[in-house]
């Protein structure tokens, strides 16, 4: 099976190459702004270099990928927002099947079989896809390949009627260690009565060397925190070795975002909160009493 892969991010592109190798030979498309990746990409059979296309050109990419895809059975894209935006458009151009955020993929009797989370994390759908197929792969599920130097072939860019013009933009403020890469996360919810009180969570995260994330209401409705730290199915999905959830009830959208965490601790005054079903260790207490004591004791151990 022949696989075409593309991502805006090199880390994700390498994960796609690994995912694609489970199906066959992988050609990785690289745009002009990504030319520097050529010497770093391993594991792909070949690199298709398009020097006349920038990865910021969404309409151009849809056209370019759809045009190249005729030679491939499977197109793999990343599950970041720019990647997901392409999946449906490319699939429909090709009359292909599509799936996003797949965690596994295999071939059975000429059909592609993928697994992905659905129903807000309450179920895993096993889907049979006709070929050709366009798929985005869940972040962090495949390790980058370690060897194999690809050949490089240049491809031309199609001419595109452009209806989308980028007229501005700015980098979002950096939040330090990205949540999805953090080893220790303290997640805060509506149990905090005001924004200033979040310092209790930051102090706990500091002593643990972790980062602070938030539930949807804190990030989106109250705007106490940046959107980038919003944990959940429409926010960031995290997989730390230790997650301490403080003052969050455990709504399904949030629960789906923390499923891959190794050890989960929940602190909540309401013993019936669903979060305790999703936790390894539950502390039924007022966070305003418990957090300062926990932080102080941890400081003593860590010698701080």
């Amino acid at each position: 099976m022949k696989v075409l892969a593309f991502s805006h991010s090199m880390d994700l592109a390498l994960e796609l190459v690994s995912a694609g190798r489970e199906l066959g030979d992988v050609s990785l498309l690289v745009t002009s702004d990504q030319e520097g990746w050529i010497n770093e990409v391993k594991g792909a059979k070949e690199i298709l270099l398009c020097k006349e296309m920038d990865s910021g050109d969404q309409e151009g990419l849809v056209e370019l990928i759809s045009g190249l895809a005729g030679d491939y059975e499977v197109v793999l894209l990343a599950s970041d927002r720019r990647g997901r935006e392409l999946v449906g458009q490319v699939a429909h151009r090709l009359g292909a099947s599509s799936a996003v955020d797949v965690s596994s993929l295999s071939v059975e009797k000429g059909k592609l079989v993928v697994e992905r989370m659905t129903f807000g994390g309450k179920a895993i759908a096993v889907e049979e896809m006709g070929l050709p197929a366009v798929i985005s792969v869940q972040k962090g599920k495949f390790r980058p390949p370690e060897e194999g130097k690809p050949s490089v072939r240049e491809v031309g860019a199609p001419s595109v009627e452009r209806r989308i013009e980028v007229i501005g933009g700015k980098e979002k403020p950096k939040v330090g260690v990205p949540l999805d890469k953090a080893e220790i996360v303290v997640a805060v919810g509506r149990g905090f009565r005001k924004k200033e009180d979040l310092k209790l969570a930051y102090e706990l995260a500091d002593v643990l060397g972790g980062v602070v994330g938030a539930t949807r209401p804190l990030a989106a409705d109250l705007k106490w925190m940046e959107e980038e730290v919003w944990i959940g199915i429409s926010g960031v999905r995290i997989a730390p070795k230790l997650l301490i959830v403080v003052g969050a009830s455990g709504q399904q959208q949030f629960a789906a975002g923390i499923m891959d965490s190794k050890v989960v601790v929940a602190v909540n005054t309401d013993s019936k909160a669903p979060i305790f079903e999703q936790a390894d260790y539950g502390v039924v207490m007022d966070l305003y009493e418990f957090l300062p004591v926990l932080t102080k004791k941890l400081k003593e151990i860590k010698g701080g």
């Binding site: 009359g95 994390g121 309450k122 179920a123 096993v126 889907e127 049979e128 006709g130 390894d280």
Partner: peptide, 16 residues
């Protein structure tokens, strides 16, 4: 172009 073969319940083992 796509059919759902099966819906499974994910196994999330928590100690509670």
């Amino acid at each position: 172009k796509l059919t759902i073969r099966e819906l499974k319940v994910p196994k999330v083992e928590r100690k509670r």
